[in-house]
Design a protein around this nucleic acid. Structure first.
Lengths: 320, 320
DNA sequence: CTGAAAGCGCTTACAG
DNA sequence: CTGAAAGCGCTTACAG
C-alpha cells in the first residue's frame, strides 16, 4: 500500500535507519489507515529479545505484593515493557516447576521474583540461569541473582527499640511468613531484645491475612505480661488490635501494637496504627531498573530502601 | 541429541500425533537433560495463537480490581495461559491509545478490560475488533463486546431498601468513580429512594481511596438530617466512618454506614462494616471462560454474580 | 537511502 | 509413524 518493501516499513517503524521523508510519510500513512501493528511474536523471534517482563509471586492482592507489582508495572510501562504475572501457589517442587514453566512459556525478556516467602525462594533456585532474573527480597545473604534488598532487620530493630524506649520490659512478636529462614523482621526484633537484656518471648506465627492476626491477638490477650507487640505485617496488626479490643484490652493503654509495611488503611485504623513503612513501589521500580542493566547502586540511594518507623496512635508508654 | 527430526520433537511435545514409544522416550530424555523449552515467540508466530491474556485496567491495588485480576489469573493458570497487566492511567485519547499499544505490542491471545471506570470504557472503544475481547462491567447497556456483568444497581437498591427498612427517612450517597454515566450503585440507590417517596439528597463524589472517603465523611458530619449513608466502595466507607467518629458522631448510633464490595477488612473495622458483597474473583474467572469461548450463560448462574447485602455492625435503627 | 535474501524456531500439511 | 519442505512476520546484514 505504501509502495515500499517490507524492510523499509521495518526501518520506519523502528527508526534505526534513515528513510527518505517521502517514503516515510507514505509508510506512516499506510500504517495509520491500515491500523497496522507489528506482530510481537515475529519481532521477538527474530530479535531474540522481548519486552515482556514476568513477575513471579505467591500473591497478588496483599499490600506489599500488590504495591511492588504496581511499581514494576509503572517502571515497565515507562520503558515500553509489558508485565506478566505468574502466581506460585505452593512451595512444592511441582508447584514451583509449574509456575516457572508457565512464566517461561511466554517469550519473556526477564523475570522478577518476589522473594518474600518460601515459594519465591524456591522459584529462584529453579529458574534456569539463561533467563535474566532479579529478586526483590529482604534476605541479605545467600543471594545468587541480582537483587533489590530492603532492610527488614533494621526495621524490626527500630520498632523494637522504640517500644523498649517507651518503657516496655519486652516486646512480643507475631511473625509473618518468610522466605525460608527467620524473617529479617524477626531477627531484628530478637537481636534488639537480646542486646537490651530483655526476655525474648515465644513467637506466634501468623499468615499474611487479618484472620490469622485476629487469632494471634486472642492468644496474646490471655498471655501474662504482654504490654507491647510487634507484628510482621499491618494486616496481621489489624487483626491483633481487633482481637485485643474484643477482649476488653485497651490499645495502646494496656498493650501497644506496631505493624509493618504502612498499609494505606493504617492511618485510618482505630487506633491509628504505628508501623514500619516500606516503600514497595520503589522496590518494584528498582527491580525493573536492575533488570534493564542499571547497577544496583545507581538505582536509588539506600535511604529510600530502608524501612522507617511511622509513629501513630497504637503505641504508648508501658502501663503501670 | 535424540536422533530425530525437529517435527518429531514438536509432535512429542504437543501430543497431537502418535510417536513411537522408543523415539518419544529419546526425545523426552533429551528435553530433560538439555532443559529444553519451546520458544513461545516462534510458536505464537506459526500458530497465530497465543496463550497470553492481557488485562487492561486503571488500577491494580484497589480491592475490586485486585480481586478480579486474581480471579483472571487463577482461571488463566488453570487453562495454561499467562496473564499480562496493562494499566491505563488516564482517560485521555492519548493515554488510552498508549495503553492499547502496549497491550497489543505483545502477542496476545485475548484481552480482558476492567470496565469499572471511564478509562476502561474508552479502552473498549479503542481496541481493534480483530482481537478477542471481553469486558467486566456493571453497565447493562451499550455493550459492544462480550461482557461479564454484575448487577450493581440491584446491590445499590438492596442496601438502600435495607436502610429505609431500619426507619431512616432517606439515605445519603458517597459515590465512587464510574464508567462514564452514573454508576449502577448510584442508580439503584436513587431509584429506590424515589420509589419509596424519599427525598434524594445531593450526591457526594469521591475517588476510590480512603482519603477521599474521609473528606466526604467530614462533609456529612456537618450536613443536617443525615442518618444513613451508602458508600460506593468499602474503602470510601472506611474513611467516612473514621471521619464521622473523629467529629464525635456515633456509628451506627447517630449515622448508619453501608459500604460496597466486601473488602477483607470490612469485618474487622470498628464498627464492623455492613456492605454489599461482590464476588470479584468469580467475575475474573468468568471473563476468562468467556474469552475461551464459553457461552455467557454457561459460566455460572446469575446468582453468583449478584451482589448481596452482608449485615454487620455499622448499621442500625434510625435514631430518635 | 532502499530492495533482495537469509533466517529466527517453531508447526503443519505432504509424502512415504 | 516420521522426515523434507514450506512458511508464519518480522529484522538484519549485504549489495547497490
Amino acid at each position: 500500500m505504501a509502495g515500499v518493501s517490507v524492510p523499509t516499513v521495518s526501518r520506519v517503524l523502528s527508526g534505526t535507519t534513515y528513510v527518505s521523508d517521502e517514503k516515510r510519510d507514505q509508510v506512516l500513512a499506510a500504517v495509520r489507515s491500515l491500523g497496522y501493528r507489528p506482530n510481537g511474536a515475529a519481532r521477538a523471534l527474530v530479535t531474540g529479545r522481548s519486552s515482556l517482563v514476568s513477575v513471579i509471586t505467591s500473591n497478588t492482592t496483599l499490600y506489599g505484593y500488590a504495591s511492588t507489582i504496581r511499581g514494576v508495572e509503572q517502571a515497565a510501562r515507562a520503558s515500553g515493557s509489558t508485565v506478566a504475572i505468574t502466581v506460585v501457589d505452593s512451595d512444592t517442587a511441582d508447584g514451583v516447576a509449574r509456575a516457572v514453566d508457565l512464566a517461561l512459556g511466554q517469550p519473556v525478556g526477564g523475570v522478577i521474583v518476589l522473594d518474600f516467602d518460601s515459594p519465591g525462594t524456591r522459584v529462584l533456585t529453579t529458574l534456569p540461569s539463561s533467563v535474566p532474573t532479579v529478586a526483590v527480597t529482604s534476605a541479605t545473604e545467600g543471594r545468587a541473582v541480582p537483587s533489590v534488598v530492603f532492610d527488614d532487620r533494621r526495621g524490626g530493630a527500630e520498632a523494637t527499640r522504640f517500644l523498649l524506649g517507651l518503657g516496655h520490659r519486652t516486646v512480643h512478636h507475631v511473625s509473618a511468613p518468610s522466605s525460608g529462614h527467620p524473617s529479617g523482621r524477626l531477627v531484628g526484633w530478637r537481636e534488639t531484645l537480646r542486646a537490651a537484656g530483655a526476655r525474648v518471648p515465644r513467637v506466634i506465627a501468623a499468615d499474611w491475612n487479618v484472620e490469622s492476626g485476629y487469632a494471634a491477638g486472642l492468644e496474646l490477650a490471655v498471655r501474662r505480661g504482654v504490654t507491647a507487640v510487634l507484628c510482621g505485617s499491618d494486616e496481621i496488626a489489624f487483626g491483633v488490635v481487633k482481637a485485643l479490643q474484643s477482649r476488653g484490652v485497651r490499645v495502646p493503654g494496656d498493650i501497644s501494637v506496631v505493624g509493618f509495611d504502612d498499609h494505606p488503611l493504617a492511618a485510618y485504623w482505630t487506633p491509628s496504627l504505628t508501623t514500619v513503612a516500606v516503600d514497595f513501589d520503589q522496590l518494584g521500580r528498582e527491580a525493573v531498573a536492575l533488570l534493564s542493566g542499571a547497577a544496583p547502586s545507581e538505582t536509588g540511594c539506600d535511604g529510600t530502601r530502608s524501612p522507617h518507623l511511622v509513629e501513630r496512635g497504637s503505641t504508648g508508654p508501658a502501663p503501670g
